[in-house]
Simulated scan of single mutants.
Amino acid sequence: MAAARETLPPGTQVGTYRIVKPIAKGGFSLIYLATDDDTGEEVVIKEYMPKKLARRDRDRRVVPAGIEYAESLHHGRKLFFQEVKALASLKHPNIVRVLAFFLANDTGYMVMPNERGRNLGAYLRERKGGLSTSFILEVFIPVLDALALLHRRSMVHLDVKPGNIHLRHGNMPLLLDLGAVHPLNRGRSHGGQVITAGYSPVEQYFRAGQVGPWTDVYAVGASIRTCMDGRTPQPAPERQKEDKVVPAVEALKDRYPDFLLKAVDWSMSMEPEKRPQDAEELLVALLPHLDDPHLARMREGGAD
């Protein structure tokens, strides 16, 4: 039996692409650097291969890890295909583009451009927080604008976190891992799906939880908080039992402006109805502060 979650070896041909090397693993996918045989360009390919549900057989096909997982794997693959098709229709400068999607090895493959830059999560680990107000706004205003488009299309991302934000030249952000996106009009509006401790609000942990645009808003607030104090916030289920998250307006009042601290606390409210109800509501609250002369001086001074 092949090892679970075995990556495709370098040189493997998949469609019109040749695998160069594996570069990342997600809960539902394996991610590779590859080259396009037709153009010679480098691309990133995401292979649908959910952890625990799937393994690779001798012919490199993605098959159920056990017979009890067959139905779940088939259902997930079908949804992955449907959702990527929907995402391919999204055009936004801060949402990763879907170049192609195809089926092979009994699974699905999503092809994206290989964008040069750095990962916000990795950058945070190096810097240990303390990122400037101007840097935070420079990154998260475009991210919120991208999420606002998803929310207007009745979609939610459900896995917003620093590790899913790619920083291109000039800190222009790119929202990644759109394979986790869930259309709300397909009966998938309940929790119990993708979880990232510290960034997923409590409703995401339970099947009965009602997820929606407000779920992404919590994750944005938690991501900004991490940029400020350099550590992942307390996981939501633990907060529900004993909330140890000191409000940002208290913990960070000497380091960041009040409007930003209030926005973070608002976004990270435990009760969904007490948060901004979608990305646009939070965006509208933050946008007026971009014209703040103090922030303009910070930007001119070369923040982060």
Rank of each mutant, 00 (worst) to 15 (best):
G26R: 07
G26N: 07
G26M: 09
G26H: 06
G27D: 04
G27S: 07
F28H: 03
F28Y: 07
F28A: 04
S29V: 10
S29N: 14
S29C: 14
S29K: 12
L30V: 02
I31D: 07
Y32W: 15
L33Y: 02
L33D: 02
L33H: 03
A34N: 00
A34T: 01
A34F: 01
A34C: 00
A34V: 01
T35M: 13
D36A: 06
D38N: 13
D38F: 09
D38P: 04
T39N: 10
G40Y: 08
E41F: 12
E42S: 02
V43M: 12
V43Y: 09
V44H: 12
V44G: 11
V44R: 12
I45E: 09
I45H: 06
I45W: 08
K46R: 03
K46S: 01
E47D: 08
E47G: 05
M49D: 12
P50I: 03
P50C: 04
K51W: 06
K51N: 11
K51C: 03
K51Q: 13
K51S: 08
A54Y: 09
A54R: 09
R55P: 03
R55A: 09
R56C: 04
D57F: 13
D57L: 11
R58F: 03
D59Q: 13
R60E: 13
R61F: 00
R61W: 00
R61Y: 00
V62F: 01
V63D: 00
P64R: 05
P64K: 03
A65Y: 01
G66N: 05
I67D: 15
I67Y: 13
I67A: 14
I67N: 14
I67H: 13
E68Y: 02
Y69T: 07
A70R: 10
A70W: 08
A70K: 09
S72T: 10
